[in-house]
Design a protein around this nucleic acid. Structure first.
Lengths: 110, 110
DNA sequence: TCATAATATTACTATTCAGCAATATAGTCA
DNA sequence: TGACTATATTGCTGAATAGTAATATTATGA
C-alpha cells in the first residue's frame, strides 16, 4: 500500500486523536460499556468541560457513537479497532522494557 | 488489559510520534529498505535539518535502527509493527469513506 | 593538517491544542 | 413558563513542537 500526501495527513490525524492520555483514558472506560459525560467526568476526576471537549474530538474522528437519553448523553465505542492499535503499541512498549531490563542486568552482573 | 496513568502517557507518546505526516512519509520510504539522510531528504523534497530531526525522533522512540557508514548514516525500520498500525487506521478510513459515499448516494437517488 | 561532504544541533518563529472558568444550550418536570 | 440538571461552547493561557537558517560535528581523503 502506497499513500499520497492527503492520505498521510488523514492517517496522522487519527494517530493524533489517540495521542492524548485523557482521550485514551476515556476510551479505556468506554471499553467496559457506554458512559455518560457525567460518569466519565467523575471516574476520571476531570472537569466536565474538558471531558465533553475530548469526547467531541473522539466523536468527530468517528471513533465513538453518541446517543441522547433525556438530558444526559451516552457515548460508546464505535471502532473496536482502536483497542487492537493500543495492544500493538503496548506490545512494543513491553518489548522495550524487557530489552532495557536485560541490558541493565547484563551491565550489573559482570 | 488495564492501564495506569504512566502507561497511558507512554502509549499516547508513541501515537504522537506517528501523528505527523512527515514522519509517516519517512517510514513509508524506509519500508522499501534502509535509506540515508540524504536520500530521504531528496526523495521527500524536504530540508536536511528537518529530516534529520524527524529521524532522531523516530529513532528515540525505538522505531528505527541507525548505522554509520563512513560519513553517511543509514536508517532502517526496527519495528515492522508500525505498518500493522497504519493498515488498521487505513482500514478504518476506507470504511468511513465508503459510508460517506453510501450516504451521499442514498440522499441523491430518492 | 586542510578541504570537503554528510549529518546533527541550536535558536528561533508560528501554529496547535489541552485544560480552564464562565456561559450558553437543551431537555425535564413542576 | 420557570427552575433545575446535564452537556456543549467560547475565549483564553501556557506548553509543546514542526519547520527553518545558521552553525557545529564527524568522517574521509589529499
Amino acid at each position: 500500500m502506497r499513500y499520497d500526501q492527503d492520505q498521510l495527513e488523514a492517517v496522522a490525524g487519527l494517530f493524533r486523536v489517540l495521542a492524548e492520555p485523557t482521550r485514551l483514558a476515556i476510551l479505556q472506560q468506554l471499553k467496559s460499556g457506554p458512559r455518560s459525560v457525567g460518569e466519565l467526568t467523575e471516574s476520571l476526576d476531570a472537569r466536565q468541560a474538558n471531558i465533553s471537549k475530548q469526547l467531541g474530538i473522539l466523536y468527530d474522528a468517528g471513533l465513538l457513537d453518541r446517543e441522547r437519553q433525556g438530558t444526559t448523553v451516552r457515548y460508546a465505542i464505535r471502532e473496536p479497532m482502536i483497542f487492537e492499535l493500543c495492544e500493538l503499541v503496548c506490545g512494543k512498549l513491553r518489548r522495550d522494557a524487557k530489552r532495557k531490563w536485560a541490558t541493565f542486568r547484563r551491565t550489573r552482573t559482570r
